[in-house]
């Protein structure tokens, strides 16, 4: 058993200070297994009384993708007719992007509510509260992971090639995970002080989705607006994902670098913001 409580004398006093980051993060990592198990069981609990159960984690983004496909391909006539290869390719692009958007979406929705809905946890246990937003983003990741297999089926049906460049997906997903985790910590902290944020963030998330190359290809962005791939933290990363999946090429290095830079800023700002306010959570919720 590796609980740091076993070997330490703890002192709680009135002096406000940010907890020492290294021991705090060690304590958080020591409870990572709890975060994983909580994420898993929360997903099970969320779909427990439904007929499709865990299948909803795949059905939800799939239905959303069909909806966007109907709008983009059928109503607006982009990408050829409904059932030809071009139409299938547009559907595959949308499905892939929306499945991956599950991670940022979990950060803005579940992550933002993780502290205010974790009342029993906050008032009954002392373990690092950072575990809660971490668990929310992990839950988004667990939602997303099985959809990779569904995506690969679409990829094959659309006759996109399976190239070695697709392995870039692993570091890109890891960067998107870190980026989302940082945003989840910021959103969770902000929501404790301004509850309205929890209602507002789903709109931010939806707007962010439209500004990111998900339901359209990054190549459709006019050159004069290509800077948005670097200003939008998710922009370059989703564009890079389209390059490796649909162009069978390696991603533009500057896209990856911009995403990595944003993820470092996001996770550092998220941790600092969270730690500065964590002490007050129990009296605020």
């Amino acid at each position: 058993m590796s609980d740091p409580d076993k070997t330490k004398v703890r002192v709680y006093d009135a002096e406000f200070r940010i907890p020492p980051i290294k021991p705090y993060l060690e304590d958080t990592f020591a409870h990572l297994r709890f975060a994983i198990e909580k994420a898993k069981l929360d997903l099970v609990a969320a779909n427990k009384n439904t007929w499709f159960g865990q299948l909803w984690n795949i059905i939800n983004p799939f239905l959303l993708a069909v909806l966007y496909w109907f709008l983009v391909v059928v109503l607006f006539g982009a990408g050829g007719s409904i059932f030809d290869r071009e139409g299938m390719r547009v559907l595959t692009q949308i499905v892939g992007g929306l499945f991956l958007w599950g991670l940022p979406s979990a950060a803005f929705n579940l992550g933002a509510r993780s502290i205010i809905q974790g009342g029993s946890f906050i008032l009954n246990t002392r373990i690092p509260r950072m575990i809660l937003p971490i668990s929310s983003v992990l839950s988004g990741f667990m939602n997303f992971a099985p959809s990779i297999l569904v995506y690969l089926l679409f990829h094959a049906l659309a006759r996109y090639p399976f190239s070695i460049h697709m392995l870039w997906a692993f570091p890109i997903i890891a960067i998107i995970f870190l980026l989302s985790l940082g945003f989840a910590m910021m959103a969770a902290t902000g929501t404790v002080y301004y509850r309205d944020l929890a209602s507002f963030l789903p709109f931010v998330s939806r707007m962010w989705l439209y500004l990111t190359p998900i339901i359209y290809l990054y190549t459709l962005m006019p050159d004069s607006l290509s800077w948005t791939f670097y200003v939008n933290p998710y922009g370059g990363l989703f564009a890079a994902m389209q390059q490796i999946l649909f162009e069978s090429s390696s991603p533009r290095f500057s896209f990856i670098l911009a995403g990595l830079g944003w993820s470092i800023v996001s996770i550092s700002a998220g941790i600092m913001m969270f730690l500065r306010k964590e002490r007050e959570f129990a009296v605020r919720i």
Partner: peptide, 10 residues
Amino acid sequence: ILPPSSGRVQ
């Protein structure tokens, strides 16, 4: 779980 306003707990 709750922070002291003054004094300390060890």
